[in-house]
Each structure stands twice: as C-alpha cells, then as structure tokens.
Design a protein around this nucleic acid. Structure first.
Lengths: 240, 240
DNA sequence: GCTATAGTGATAGCACCGATACCGGAGACG
DNA sequence: CGTCTCCGGTATCGGTGCTATCACTATAGC
C-alpha cells in the first residue's frame, strides 16, 4: 500500500487546510477550485467527490476555521456565574471575527434566505447552551429562544460592523457597550431584587428545566410550556 | 439626432433598472454582465464605460434600490418627538431589508474590510441626523457617534438575521425588542427625571449644538468638545 | 486464486463569467 | 475642413465552477 498523503493527513484534510490558508491570506476571492487544487496537490474532481460542491468546501472550511480557533482558545470553561460565562462567549465570538474576518464573513456574512452554514449552527448551539444556563439560574427575563436570537443578532451586527471598519479606528468598547445593553435587556441583575419581574423569571426558569418534570406526561409538559411562554412574552413584548 | 434610448430614459438608467430587476427577482448571482446587457439591450463595454467596474454597477444598483424604496415610503417626516422618529427610521430600515433582501444584502451584507457602498453611507447619514436631533433634545446618554454605531450595528444584525431565517417563522418582535433595548441604552426617558445622568445628558446636548457657539474660537470649541466627550464616555464605558 | 465492483486518481472539456482591445461612425469645436 | 472625443459593436482573453470520461487499484465475494 502506498501512502497517498503527506504526514498522515487525509486528502480531505489537505484540501480543507489549503482552502483555509488561501482564505485567511487572500480573502474570499482567492479560494477558487484551481487555487485549492494546486495548493493541495489534487485534481478538480476530488473536490466535488468529497464536498459535492464548492459551497460544500467553503462550508467545511468555515467549520474548520471556527473549530481551530475555539480549540486554540481552550474555550468556555464554565464558572458558577452563567452571565459572566456568556460575557466570555460574546468576547470570544467578537475576537474570532476580528482575528479571522474572512472566516467570519464566510460563516455569518452570507445573507441568502434560508441558508445556514454548519459553523453558524454550531455557534448557535453553544450560545443556546449558555443562555439555558442563565435561564436555569432564574436570571432570564425573556424566552430562551428570544434571548438567544437577540444576543446572536446583536453580536453579529457589531462584529460585522467592526470588520467593515478600517482596522485602525476599530473601537472594542462598541462591543462592550452592545454586550451590556443586550444583557441588561434579557437578564435580571443578581444583586438587585426584582420583585415585579419575579413571575417572569420564575416562568423562564421553570421552562428551562421543564424536561426534568417527568411527573407530567409529554402532552402536559407541552401545554405547560406554552403557558409559560405566554407569560414570558406578555411581560416583554410591549415597550418599556 | 437620433433618440438612443426608449421612453426618454438614458442608457445609464436603463442599465441600472435592468440590474435592479434581475437582482430583486433572481438574487445576486442573476446579476451578471451578460444578463444585464441582454436585459438592457446594451453591449458589454457600455457597462465599463459608465460604471468603471462590475462593483461600480452593483454599487449604483444598490443605491438605486434604496432610493426607490425610500421614495415610495415618503419617508421620515419629522415629528416633535425625535426618539419616535428614530423608531420610525428603524422600522423603515428593517422593512427595507425584508422587502428587498437582495438589495439589503448587497448594501449591508458585504464584509470586506474597508469597503462601504454609497447606499450604506447615505443610510448612515440619515441615522446620524436622527441621532443628532435626539442629542439636541438632551435625551442622549452617550456620544452621538457611539449611539449611531450601536443603533446601526444592532439594526443591521437583526435585519440580516431576519433575512437569513425562513420567511414563515420570521418574528418582527425580535426587531421591536432589539430596538427598545438599544434605545433604552442610548436615550433617557423623557417622562422620568434622570438626576444622576443629568450631567451626561447636558454634556451630550451641548456637544450636539456646539457648532452654534460662535462666541468661542474654533480651537476652544475643539478642546471643549473633547472634554464633553470625556465626560460622556466616562459615564457609560464601565458595566452598569 | 480469480473476478466483479467500488473508489480514486488524471485528462480534457463545457458553459459561463468579468474585463478589454479594437474598430467605426457621429457629433463638437476650432 | 480637420481633429477629437464620445458611444455603440465585435471579438476575444484569461479565469471560474463543474462534469464526462478514462485508467488504475484495492477490496469483496465466490
């Protein structure tokens, strides 16, 4: 048997790493099938056999870039303060965008309706986990889904704005301010008692741990979940 | 002299309108030089003579789409409540994104560092004007520039998120919630007195009307402006 | 052990893309 | 009248995503 690839890496990995290198150094337009092929020492059909599509290769490349960054940062050790963990996650997200703008634009900057890269989905799942922990601590003032959407939207907008700015006058306090603004909206401060919103907090907290309520049937849990959602939404839909 | 274009429209307008039609109907990939040429009844070199570049044509097309939308909406009549005017501007912005997602993605969705379409610049100027009126009313709690950046970033992120979602489960309350969240951060409520932030409000308000202080020299105004900026930033940089 | 089959290399090529060199006529201006 | 600048038209160049097709090898089944 002949070793078909250098250093034990598979053909698929060689292609992805070549594409990632081209992307981070030359931008989106530098990633063409020809360039990837010559850089990886592979012929064109290999790409389509392995990834089906140029879009598939870009998707895998974005996923690879995000995973590499997260691995380098040994990301997201959980502390006992879930809100502080979310702050760390936010800063990690923005940091990835500024460190690898081309990857970030590839993952979060494509606007075609109904298309979500796998890397974006993974990031959304990480965020959902962070939000869920806040909800379980009883410090969420809106629905989990809504909080996650709001946080993700704001973070994406801020990061894309920072990327589009000329690097010398980027101001990270924009990120800090947006983060605290959205956190103030979706979380209740741990120190100050919030008697008025106690109902909402309790509803959200219960909603987050609803799956553990094995005493209820699935249908009962579904109905209860809908009621809790109504309570939560009614508290925050109107202007304040 | 022969009439070279139909219905009195110039060649430039014919090309832009053809590109806009292709964009709104077929998406970004449908706008190619060939397609535009056949749709407008024009040869390829005309595009490059008039717009210099394909990017130039796309820029002009995005500008045209935004201008058309704003004209249709007879946009932005000013009331006596500048914050309410900003709400209307926000909703107009999001409405444009959902009504013309391809145009929106073309204008606000490109992430390359240091590149800003003219349509994006025009939108930023409209926003700056709205924010300035709030500042002049003494209801801004942060720097004008910072408020504009924060509002623009958040609105862009929310709109791009809504565009990327499948149309049937788009929820405009996400937009409402983000709008009120950012407004709560950068403005002070007119009804509730805010004694603690009175200094900041006064500083921002004075900063907004500083150009009218012709009693001072230009250098004096510059120094005073810097001081006022320091006062404002000191109040809002830290966590709350 | 032999053959059928699936998987992987390599070549060549298609249709399309953005962009440009070049030509020709038509009006503007001195 | 001569020049000169604009604008429409033809043809073409290099590059792109993608695929049909062939050659070869390693595995599976008998």
């Amino acid at each position: 048997m002949y070793i078909t690839a250098v250093a034990g890496t598979s053909t698929r990995e060689r292609i992805i790493e070549a594409a990632a290198k081209l992307l981070s150094e030359g931008g989106r337009d530098a990633v063409s099938t020809r360039a990837v092929c010559t850089a990886a020492g592979v012929q064109a059909p290999a790409i389509y056999r392995l990834f089906g599509d140029m879009q598939g290769l870009l998707d895998a490349t974005g996923n690879f870039g995000l995973a590499t960054y997260l691995a380098d940062k040994t990301a997201l050790e959980e502390t006992d303060d879930p809100v502080e963990d979310l702050r760390a996650g936010w800063d990690l997200h923005v940091g990835f965008g500024l460190a690898q703008p081309w990857f970030y634009a590839l993952i979060f900057g494509e606007a075609r309706p109904g298309h979500e890269p796998t890397a974006a989905r993974q990031a959304a799942e990480i965020l959902a986990h962070l939000v869920r922990r806040i909800a379980q601590a009883g410090r969420l003032t809106v629905t989990e889904e809504r909080a996650a959407q709001l946080i993700h939207s704001t973070g994406k907008g801020v990061t894309l704005t920072l990327i589009a700015m000329p690097p010398h006058d980027r101001d990270l306090s924009l990120s800090t301010m947006a983060r605290e603004s959205v956190l103030a909206t979706v979380t209740s401060d741990a120190t100050t008692a919030a008697p008025h919103t106690g109902l909402i907090n309790a509803a959200v907290s219960l909603h987050a741990t609803l799956d553990d309520a094995t005493v209820l049937t699935e249908a009962e849990r579904a109905l209860l979940g809908e009621w809790l959602g109504r309570i939560t939404r009614a508290g925050r839909t109107d202007r304040r």
